[in-house]
């Protein structure tokens, strides 16, 4: 396997869990799939449409977001919003993120000194 593929695989793995957290935080304000995709890209969270749309469905199935069809616009769109369970999970994941960041900083500093 070429080294580019290997490093792409590892970077993807490192990012994987962060997308769900970013979605839960972003969807405190209701939004639909394509707008969320663009907002995340603007935030610097790289996510593929083929990952994001199935993820939204899974989050809904797990009760972490709720959805509602909005028919007022030019075409019907499904708006997602973070549920109470999703809010709790988002807080836990945020804590974990800070812990991981602190831990990795420690490891990085040791490696450099």
């Amino acid at each position: 396997m070429p080294i580019d593929d290997v490093s792409a695989g590892h970077r993807q793995e490192l990012r994987r869990g962060t997308v769900a957290l970013a979605c839960l935080l972003r969807l405190r304000r209701p939004d639909y799939g394509y707008a969320l995709l663009e907002a995340l890209a603007a935030d610097g969270i790289d996510v593929d449409a083929n990952t994001l749309y199935p993820l939204l469905r899974r989050l809904e199935k797990q009760g972490l977001v709720t959805s509602e069809w909005s028919t007022g616009e030019t075409r019907p769109r499904k708006f997602y919003r973070t549920s109470d369970d999703g809010e709790r999970l988002a807080r836990d994941l945020t804590q974990d993120w800070y812990r991981l960041d602190a831990a990795l900083r420690g490891v990085i500093d040791q490696g450099e000194s």
């Binding site: 799939g33 394509y34 749309y53 075409r75 019907p76 769109r77 499904k78």
Partner: peptide, 14 residues
């Protein structure tokens, strides 16, 4: 069907 239709329409508009 509605979800995928929305996705196709949004992506096409872009």
């Amino acid at each position: 069907r509605r979800e995928i239709a929305e996705r196709i329409a949004d992506a096409t508009d872009a």
